[in-house]
Design a protein around this nucleic acid. Sequence first.
DNA 1: CCTTTCTGGAACATCGGTGTTCCATTGCGG
DNA 2: CCGCAATGGAACACCGATGTTCCAGAAAGG
Lengths: 178, 178
Amino acid sequence: MRSVRARTRQAILDAAIEVLSRNPAAPLGEVATAADVGRTTLHRYFPERTDLIEALKEEAGRRLDEARLRARVGDETGASAIRRLCQEYFDLGDVLSLLFREQIAFEDEGDCDDGFTAMIERGHSDGSIDPELPATWISNLMWSHLYGGWSYISEAQVSRHEALRLVLRSIEGAVTPR
Amino acid sequence: MRSVRARTRQAILDAAIEVLSRNPAAPLGEVATAADVGRTTLHRYFPERTDLIEALKEEAGRRLDEARLRARVGDETGASAIRRLCQEYFDLGDVLSLLFREQIAFEDEGDCDDGFTAMIERGHSDGSIDPELPATWISNLMWSHLYGGWSYISEAQVSRHEALRLVLRSIEGAVTPR
DNA sequence: CCTTTCTGGAACATCGGTGTTCCATTGCGG
DNA sequence: CCGCAATGGAACACCGATGTTCCAGAAAGG
């Protein structure tokens, strides 16, 4: 029976990501509907709105960690590492918007974690990242771009792939030493 | 007596920009307080919330237009023009956040207006802007950067001036042909 | 100085979202 | 096949924001 609960819980979380990423103030009823679940059931799993948000943060954090792991930020030059990281993050989709709209973003994430800072500093040394640009700024830059790229998809009627291409292109340009 | 009404109205608008840029869902009472005005008075000037938002859009649009005018986007190379435009927009401060948080942004602004497109295309021709990058993307890029730069100020405890420097540096890097 | 205009507090009805309770139904799992 | 767990609908109280009305006091302007 454990699996039933787990499945329902996950369905709610997935729906919440989808709905709340588009509108953080959306009523819980909408989340429930999107999850194909009664509002009552939603409250059974997450008694208060804040409980849902809390769980959402954890979920987003987990996915972020997985993505960071896949990106292998310790390998190769700093610039190529950040490129891989962006690719992985970009694929997170709605989670990105969520991290933005809620102010979850840079509080779990910190200004940026140790691995990130290390990656940038490696880039500073190996000449692939402009030493004038601090890690915190590059972190900020990356998130702005990711969000921008994602919203560009719906604005400009452009493929996910094309948007990613532009994002990578622009970040690389911004970061490369002149 | 005309001037009294105008002054009160403006005070409300200014307060609304400040408050709603930080939290678009803020209750009207907060706006009234920030404007040093009774909630009743606020409702006298803007009967419904939507009326206030409406006026806010106009106000933001006006300030945006002024900034664009000051930037003289028709002069010099495309790259230098976009640089000036960013500088002017950056100085709008809270208005920027407002344009983001409310979804006013790219609806009055359109994907980008004619002047903007012309500026970019001039840049494409004069070799200061990478022809691979469409005007719509650069518009998107610019706004993301502006917002990112502005939030960077409070995140990284950095001066307005330093943030602007980084924004300009990054946009230039992203836009310059390789 | 007196009138007209503007103001802001208080009180009120309304509305939508929230969280709770109760109950009938469904459906896993033993 | 039976029983316990999970579900979802209905009804409810509650709360905060909204928008309205009324009135007394302040202030502008003749």
